[in-house]
Design a protein around this nucleic acid. Sequence first.
DNA 1: CGCTTTTGACCTGCGC
DNA 2: GCGCAGGTCAAAAGCG
Length: 341
Amino acid sequence: MSEPTKDAAAPDHHNMLLSQGFSSFPTTATLDHHLINYNHYSPFMMYHDLQNPSTDQFDRTHHHNPPDHDLCSLFLQASADYITTTPSTPFHLSSNNCSSSEVAVCNTSKNCNNSNTEVVITDIAAENPPTPNSWGSLSSPEAGGVDEDSSSKGKKDLQLKVCEGGDIGKSKKLKAEKTKKKEDKKKQREARFAFMTKSEVDNLEDGYRWRKYGQKAVKNSPFPRSYYKCTSQKCSVKKRIERSHEDPLVVITTYEGQHNHHSPATIRGGAAAAFFTPSLFSPPPPPLPPAFPIFPQVDLFSPSTTTQQYSQQQQPQLPDHHHYSLFPDMLSSFLRNPHDP
DNA sequence: CGCTTTTGACCTGCGC
DNA sequence: GCGCAGGTCAAAAGCG
């Protein structure tokens, strides 16, 4: 997981969570073609293998408790910081396992001060995230980027050629070209992150201002999906909010793209300031329970440093990509154990 | 009055 | 080509 870069004045949501007893972990990876989801912040490192639901190790004992909405929002703000300021994702994902409408299931449980919050971040399609230099020119029609219409028109032309071609070899070649074009188009899509949050409130405050531009009924779900755009000029970030049909208490928030500006709440000290209220930061959090045995609780940025040291060392810097490259191997080694016969 | 939400129409991709 | 589902647009309505 990366450390967001911040202004001196900006609240440090990441460290606020760390001070609450949450530790930082990467989000998602694939292992043996299985999509594995990790907690973003959690005192417990838990996971769920999508293709082996029997390995579900979620702590469901606190689900009846009312969720702590402030904490949910803090998660979202920290995650939004991450999305806004992280120039690259930790590792590539197999987004094929997860369609735009499917969000992988994984839970994080925290039982602290009678609050129970479950937040999950799933990097759905981060195959070709923009670099920091490209933040101002994200590929979207609104930002004057790649025109989706023209690419789809080209695709139609290609389909026509495939139909007209009598030569099998040529047809195969064209089909391959078609597939490649499809993949290229997928790569052009903005990075997407899905958050699953246990909450009675659909639209949790995440520090940014959004304008709703659509709502659609979702197949096989009684709950509609809402579409939002960031109201900031030249920012093409979108988010979708829907409730899980499997668990109506779970809100699935999917962010697409990266903000090219800071959170208005951060600047105004509005919503973010609420997180400094005594309800969250006084009295100090109780000691952490032991980490989940299979997944040692480590700070992946600097395993030997404390949270405080970590923030002092890392805060002013951009995320170091070398750290990310360590994650897949490290986590794969963690994750293999539960599946071993 | 300006901004946001609602909602039906429209567009696009995909499978058959 | 057709139907379906997801996503977006844009006019109208709602709200502070």
